[in-house]
Design a protein around this nucleic acid. Structure first.
Lengths: 132, 132
DNA sequence: TACAATGGCGTTCGCTTGTACGTTTAGGTG
DNA sequence: CACCTAAACGTACAAGCGAACGCCATTGTA
C-alpha cells in the first residue's frame, strides 16, 4: 500500500495530469496540451515523461515511431497520497483547518456550498448505515 | 499582494511551523521541539532557519549570544498561499474534488461533519448579507 | 531513393535542498 | 582573567530538479 515511488516534482505532476486526462498520450500530445504561455521545449517534455516512467508512475509501449505513455498507478491513488502528505505537513492531518483556509482564500460559490452540503449528507448517511 | 518569496521547501516548512507555533524562537528552541525520531543536527536546523530568513519568511534580532527568529510574513498568509498553489496544481483550483479526496482517503468523523455544516452555515449567512 | 522531419536516448548544466562540518566569536563561570 | 561552551557564520557536497541540446534512427514524402 505504501509503495514508495519517489515523489512527483512540480513539473512532473503537471505532465502526469495531462496523461491522466487523456488516458494515454505521446510526448507530442502532452506537449500540445500545455497552455500556450508555458513555453517548454518538446525535448523537455520528453525528459519529464521519461522521468515519470523511471519513477514508476507511467508505463509505455511503442506505437510506430513514438512511445505511448499511460498510467502505471491509478491517478486517484497518486492524488490521494499527494493530498494526504500535504495535509499532514501543513495541518497535522486535520481536515477542517484546511477547508477553512480554502474558503477564506478563494471564497466559495453558493453553488459549491450546496454541493458540499450534499456531500456531507451522503457521508452522514453512510455513517448511519454503518452504525445500525 | 503576490509578493513572490521563493517557495518553502519541505524541511523549511517544518521549521517555520514550529516558529509560528511558538511565536518566536531560537535555533535551540526549534531544535528541541522536533519530534524525537527526527534526528537532525543542531547545525542543520540552524541552516534551515538561516535560509528562511534569506527567503524572507522570518526576521531576526539578536538577544545576547543567540538570535531570535520570528515571522516576517503572517503565517496565515503563507498557509493560504501554499494551499492555493497546491489546489491549483492538483485540482485546477477547484475546491470540491479536493474535499472529496480528503474524506475518501482519511474518512471524516461525525464531529467534523457537524463542524463543516456549521462552517457552511456561516458562509451562507455571509452570502445572504452581501446580497441584500 | 535521397532527404527533411520527428522522436528516442543519453547527457549537460546551473540551481535548490537536505544535511552537516569547521572556524570564529561572544559570554558565563571557576 | 583565563577558559570553556554554545552560537553564528561560512562552506561543502551529493541528490533532485527544471530545462534543454546533440546525435542517431526511423519514416513519410519529393
Amino acid at each position: 500500500m505504501t509503495t514508495q515511488r519517489p515523489p512527483l516534482s512540480r513539473a512532473e505532476l503537471e505532465m502526469a495530469r495531462i496523461v491522466w486526462d487523456l488516458g494515454e498520450a505521446t510526448v507530442r500530445q502532452v506537449f500540445e496540451r500545455l497552455p500556450a504561455e508555458r513555453e517548454l521545449d518538446f525535448k523537455t517534455v520528453q525528459t519529464y515523461l521519461r522521468r515519470l516512467e523511471a519513477k514508476g508512475y507511467l508505463r509505455t509501449h511503442r506505437e510506430g515511431r513514438s512511445k505511448v505513455y499511460r498510467p502505471r498507478v491509478q491517478p486517484d491513488q497518486v492524488v490521494r497520497e499527494t493530498v494526504s502528505d500535504f495535509v499532514d505537513r501543513l495541518f497535522d492531518g486535520e481536515l477542517l483547518p484546511l477547508v477553512q483556509h480554502l474558503v477564506e482564500d478563494r471564497g466559495i460559490e453558493e453553488d459549491e456550498i450546496r454541493q458540499l452540503r450534499a456531500l456531507l449528507d451522503r457521508l452522514e448517511a453512510e455513517h448511519e448505515s454503518r452504525r445500525q
